[in-house]
Computed example of a mutant assay.
Amino acid sequence: MTPETASPATNGPATPSDQPASSGPNAPYRFPTDKLKRRQTQPGKTPLVLVACGSFSPITFLHLRMFEMASDFVRFNTDFEVCAGYLSPVSDAYKKVGLAPSHHRVNMCSRAVEHSTWLMVDPFETVNCNENGEPEYVPTAKVLRHFDHEINTVLGGIEGTDGQMKKARIALLAGADLVMSMGEPGLWAPSDLDVILGQYGAFIIERSGTDIDEAIASLRQYESNIWIISQVIQNDISSTKVRLFLKKDLSVRYLIPDPVVEYIEEHQLFQGPQGESKDKTPGDGDPGSSNTKPVKG
C-alpha cells in the first residue's frame, strides 16, 4: 500500500454526504451487513470492525490471511471483540497498472470470502462517481468514516451482552509497508493521519525486511492506536507477482483462492502486455492514462 495526498472533506464525523454521489455498474449501492455480528458474545469487550483498503487485483491468500492473523491477535491481546471484517476495493480512478475494472475486483473478492463467516466486500469506493459519472478517488480517511457512519449511525452500533447498544471501533487493517509510508514526511496529509490513526487506529501486519520500530518512530503521537501483529509464517504473495505469473501463462493455483482462479480464467483477466485485463472499457483505469491517483494496495 502506498500513501495518499490531501483531499477535501477528510475531517469531521461521517455524514450521509459521504455516501456515493452516484453509482457505477453495480447500482444501487447497499452497505453489506449479512455477516456483521449484531450482538456481542463477550462481556466487557469493545466491538471491533476491521477494514482493509486495497487494489485486490487480484485478491490473494495473504489478503485473507491478514484478517485471520488480526482476529487471533485481537482475541489474545486486546479488549476488543471482532464483529466483522471488510475488504474495500479501490476506485477505478486510481489508474494503476494492472488494475482490473472495479466490478471484476469486487466479484473476485466476493468469491474469495463467499464461505467466510465474517468477511465481506464493500463496493463503496468503486461506486463513488463525480457529477459526470466518472470514478472518483476516495481517501482512506473517508472510507473509515463511511464505515463509522453505516455501523454506528445508521445501524446504531452493536448490541452488547447486556442488551445496550455500543459504538463499534472501526480500524484499518494493513501491511507494514503502509505504516512505513505514513512515517515519511510529505507523503500523507496530516489531517488524514489524524483521522486514520488518531480517530480510528490501525492493525499492522509485520513483514520481513521491514523495520517496524523505525516506521513507528515518527508516529509516536498515534502509538496507542497502532497494533503491530507478527507474521509467524512468512508469506510474500502479492497481487503483482500473481499478475506476473498470469502474464507468463504460469499457474497461480494455491497462491489465490480457487474461485478467483476460475473467475480470472472465465474473464481472461491480467493477460494483456502489462498484466491488465483484456476486456477493459473506457474509464476503467487505463494504465496509460496520465490522470493518475495515489494507490492503496
Results as ranks from 00 to 15, higher is better:
Pro135Cys: 00
Thr153Tyr: 03
Cys129Glu: 07
Glu131Gly: 02
Val82Asn: 10
Val97Lys: 10
Cys53Tyr: 01
Arg38Cys: 11
Gln40Ser: 14
Ile158Thr: 04
Phe67Cys: 15
Gly44Ala: 10
Cys53Val: 15
Phe67Ala: 08
Arg145Glu: 03
Glu68Pro: 08
Ala168Gln: 08
Met120Asn: 05
Thr78Ile: 10
Thr117Ala: 13
Thr41Phe: 00
Ser55Trp: 00
His63Val: 09
Arg111Glu: 10
Ile59Tyr: 05
Pro43Glu: 03
Val74Leu: 01
Gly44Met: 13
Met69Asn: 13
Gly54Asn: 05
Thr126Ser: 12
Arg145Ser: 12
Asp92Phe: 02
Pro135Ile: 00
Ser71Trp: 02
Gly98Arg: 01
Leu155Ser: 09
Asn107Ala: 15
Lys96Val: 06
Gln40Arg: 12
Trp118Ala: 06
Ser91Asn: 07
Leu155Asn: 11
Cys83Gly: 14
Gly44His: 05
Glu68Asn: 13
Glu159Leu: 09
Pro89Asp: 04
His149Glu: 04
Asn77Tyr: 01
Val138Glu: 07
Val51Ile: 15
Leu62Asp: 01
Lys37Ala: 08
Val106Trp: 00
Asp92Gln: 09
Met108Phe: 07
Thr117Lys: 06
Leu64Phe: 08
Lys96Met: 06
Ala70Pro: 14
Gly156Thr: 04
Gly163Ser: 09
Ala168Asn: 05
Asn132Lys: 14
Val97Asp: 12
Cys53Phe: 02
Gly85Gln: 03
Thr117Arg: 08
Glu159Ala: 11
Arg75Ser: 14
Ser57Ile: 02
Ser102Phe: 07
Thr78Lys: 09
Thr161Glu: 13
Ile151Pro: 11
Gly160His: 11
Val127Leu: 07
Ser110Tyr: 03
Ser102Lys: 05
Leu50Glu: 07
Phe73Leu: 02
Pro123Thr: 02
Glu68Cys: 03
Ser71Gln: 12
Met108Asp: 08
Cys109Met: 03
Lys37Gln: 14
Pro101Gly: 11
Ile151His: 05
Phe76Ser: 10
Lys96His: 15
Arg75Glu: 14
Pro135Glu: 00
His146Asp: 05
Asp162Arg: 02
His149Gln: 13
Asp72Leu: 10
Gln164Ser: 13
Leu64Val: 12
Pro139Lys: 07
Arg169Cys: 11
Val106Ser: 08
Leu99Met: 12
Ile158Asn: 06
Lys45Tyr: 04
Val51Ser: 12
Asp92Arg: 05
Arg145Ile: 06
Thr161Cys: 10
Glu134Asp: 08
Glu81Phe: 03
Gln42Ile: 15
Thr78Met: 01
Tyr86Gln: 10
Met120Phe: 06
Asp162Cys: 10
Gly54Ser: 09
Met108Asn: 07
His104Tyr: 08
Phe61Thr: 13
Val121Asn: 08
Leu36Thr: 14
Ala168Pro: 14
Ala93Met: 08
Phe147Thr: 05
Leu48Arg: 09
Asp122Cys: 15
Val90Ile: 12
Ala168Phe: 03
Asn130Arg: 11
Lys45Ser: 12
Gly98Ser: 01
Val121Lys: 04
Asp79His: 13
Met120Trp: 06
Asn128Trp: 01
Gly44Lys: 06
Cys83Ile: 06
Arg145Gly: 06
Leu50Ser: 15
Arg169Asn: 11
Ala112Lys: 04
Arg145Met: 11
Val154Pro: 15
